[in-house]
């Protein structure tokens, strides 16, 4: 027993020398971006041994809360910061957080591969997700209830979709909220009558709908070309926010690298869309 206890103590003290205060860079925020951020971190760390980067998800809202509570160095955001959030940051550390656009993303609307519907208008999407349209037959599909999949309300994707597709209205109460885009996708791939939304980077196992801006405009498929050109109606920029006071040394180098060709190549690998060179400046 004594030996055991001694072992435990030694193990604990060996593993955990107190005092090292820094994972050099902590990143927090958007779940949509967590895979991208993690890949960035992996590639960067393999090129710069000795630098440690820690990535946590939780949602864009979490990221801003953490940025303002100064619990993270970088905040990944899949929507632009709000005035209220800027104000909170100023109150917390005296300055506006600095904003960097780091990638582009198209939001896809997924349906099951067996669903005959291929395209919808933004207005139809709004009616579906606010719960006004409840049956696929109203859209020319089979007579079956529409099963809605949404995201947890911490997610930037949720807020973006709500703002840009639902025009700020509430999601229908019967929309199921899942924890990750992959879970939405998995649900839709298993649920014949399901519909969900999420980043275009995901998307194996379900059909991406073509989206029309309104009834008369052409149906656009989410792809690099349409997203970068802005033709696809549900596209957005992905951002990284930082407390300017911290932007020096390793952190600044890392931020610069993210927007370099090497960093943008990773964006493409993960399945988002790289920024066109002229958009990388800010």
């Amino acid at each position: 027993m004594k030996t055991l206890r001694a072992c435990l103590l030694i193990l604990a003290s060996a593993c955990l020398p107190g005092g090292s205060l820094l994972a050099d860079i902590t990143v927090r925020g958007s779940d949509t971006m967590v895979i991208l951020a993690q890949k960035w971190a992996e590639v960067y760390m393999s090129q710069h041994p000795g630098i440690k980067i820690q990535v946590t998800g939780g949602g864009t809202g979490t990221g801003f809360a953490a940025l303002q509570n100064q619990q993270t160095d970088l905040c990944n955001a899949s929507r632009p910061i709000r005035p209220q959030e800027i104000a909170n940051c100023i109150k917390a550390f005296g300055r506006r957080p600095r904003e960097y656009r780091v990638a582009l993303d198209g939001l896809s609307v997924y349906v099951n591969a067996a669903n005959p519907i291929n395209e919808l208008t933004l207005a139809q999407l709004e009616q579906i997700f606010t719960g006004r349209l409840r049956n696929w037959k109203d859209l020319g599909g089979p007579d079956a209830p529409i099963i809605l999949y949404s995201r947890e309300n911490s997610s930037g994707t949720y807020e973006f979709f709500k703002e840009h597709v639902l025009q700020g209205k509430d999601f229908a109460a019967h929309a199921q909220t899942l924890q990750g885009t992959a879970q939405v996708l998995q649900a839709v791939s298993r649920e014949t009558h399901g519909i969900g939304y999420g980043g275009a980077a995901y998307g194996v196992g379900a059909k991406h709908l073509h989206i029309k801006k309104d009834a008369d405009s052409p149906a656009i498929e989410p792809s690099e070309e349409t997203v970068v050109s802005g033709a696809y109606p549900i596209a957005r920029s992905l951002f990284v926010y930082v407390n300017p006071a911290l932007e020096k040394g390793d952190l600044a180098a890392y931020l610069k690298w993210i927007r370099s060709d090497a960093g943008q190549a990773v964006v493409k690998d993960v399945g988002y869309f790289p920024l066109p060179p002229d958009a990388r400046a800010r």
């Binding site: 949602g59 809360a65 303002q68 947890e152 309300n153 911490s154």
Partner: peptide
Amino acid sequence: AAELAETVV
């Protein structure tokens, strides 16, 4: 569990 992490303290 789902919402607390993202709220402002």
